[in-house]
Design a protein around this nucleic acid. Structure first.
Lengths: 229, 229
DNA sequence: CCAAAAGTGTTCACGGTACACCCATGC
DNA sequence: GCATGGGTGTACCGTGAACACTTTTGG
């Protein structure tokens, strides 16, 4: 079977930068390529856009098929279309980035057939194609966006402590934050619900658990509220 | 001549949202289509990405060929790839937006063969394809970006008055700004050069002319400076 | 001399930042 | 009882916002 066009058409792929948060570090999920080009190099999960699916559908499909990840925050990042970026043929890729809670998504699913692994953002292996450039951009976007939209919660479990939340921002923004000021600010925004639960199995005073109140946030937005950290 | 692939390939286009600033309004340059589909509807300048040019090259080429615009600020906006967005075949478009100084770019060039015209942003004609959606997004991006990056200057002549600059922000942000506070803030940033010139041919006190000092801005950025209005 | 826009300082309220100690719990 | 992190308030400073009059120029 073959498909013929009057003018040359580039191939179009989607690639996904999947961010996860370890206790200590920001990480990215990569997949080891088994085919040429770049066999044995690590690469972003991704693949060709099917002719009857939208870009977002393609990205979510790849997220699921290649990384075993579903129902997560995902957003288009940028499109990369330099002429030589794929040695086989002209390939334009539309990059997305996703935020997942590592502990909730067991890596099992992802390891099915593929060789997949999380890498610390500042200790990445050699990458295929221009994926390093894509990751750079995704990281910049994350750093910028996390400050004025409440997307950081996507990296945490549903129930989290204020200290975990603070650590998240410290890790992403790469600077220490003052505990009291941080709590004051977050609490004042009133977008967290106190779950009236406390941590279990910790070797010190147990912290209160909170959840992000998406509905409340939506209402506040309508009233002109602006998240900002 | 024909081009054949093992799997179906979408077509890829670029489309450009070209913003310009009139005395009173923010405007967009549109081109009247003479071919189906959407013949006689207005559309964003754009066209197919050639197989041997990058996305940005394609966007700049279209900017020049269709709108007669060169050497302007331009940035990738977003990629639109819904399945039915072009009735002919599957077309994915990578949208860019550009900022031009209307008075410097004579519309002549653009009017060559094409029917091109500037439209006020809140008085657009019926548009082809999903171009309304693209413009919506471009406008949101412009409104957001203008506040924390000094791109507004791209819409003004090289020499401008502080009042012109203030009007620009008032028009884009759609809210009045306080004259004294605005001047205080801009002057403190020290990214303008006082050209020691004044307006000519005005029927009132002539205002001082300023220019945007790109080099100085670059240096400040390196020192951790953040433009913000 | 009148119309039209240019240019210029001060006050107040609020939010950001810096900072240190007691509390609860498990071992 | 000690080690570990949880939780809390206050004082100061800088920035954002509100606000009105004098100056210059052309007609």
């Amino acid at each position: 079977m073959a498909f013929t066009y009057e003018y040359p058409h580039p191939a179009v792929t989607v690639d996904c930068v999947i961010f996860g948060l370890d206790e200590e570090e920001l990480k990215i999920l990569l997949i080891k390529r088994d085919l040429e080009p770049f066999a044995d190099k690590w690469a972003l999960p991704g693949g060709f856009v099917q002719i009857e699916e939208s870009l977002e559908e393609a990205a979510r499909r790849e997220l699921h098929e290649e990384a075993g990840v579903r129902n997560v925050f995902m957003e288009q990042l940028y499109s990369f279309g330099d002429v030589g970026r794929d040695p086989r043929e002209r390939v334009i890729t539309v990059a997305y980035y996703a935020l997942v809670n590592i502990s909730a998504h067991n890596l099992q699913a992802a390891t099915d057939a593929r060789d997949a692994a999380w890498f610390a953002i500042d200790d990445l292996p050699p990458l295929a194609f221009d994926h390093e450039k894509i990751i750079d951009m995704a990281l910049k976007r994350l750093k910028g966006k996390v400050r004025y939209e409440p997307i950081g919660f996507e990296l945490l479990p549903k129930k989290f402590t204020l200290t975990q939340l603070q650590r998240l921002y410290e890790i992403i923004l790469e600077r220490p934050l003052d505990k009291r000021n941080f709590r004051k600010k977050i609490q004042k925004m009133a977008i967290l619900v106190d779950l009236n639960e406390i941590q279990k199995d910790v070797a010190h005073r147990a912290a209160r658990l909170y959840g992000f109140d998406e509905d409340k946030y939506g209402q506040l937005i309508k009233q002109g509220f602006n998240f900002e950290l």
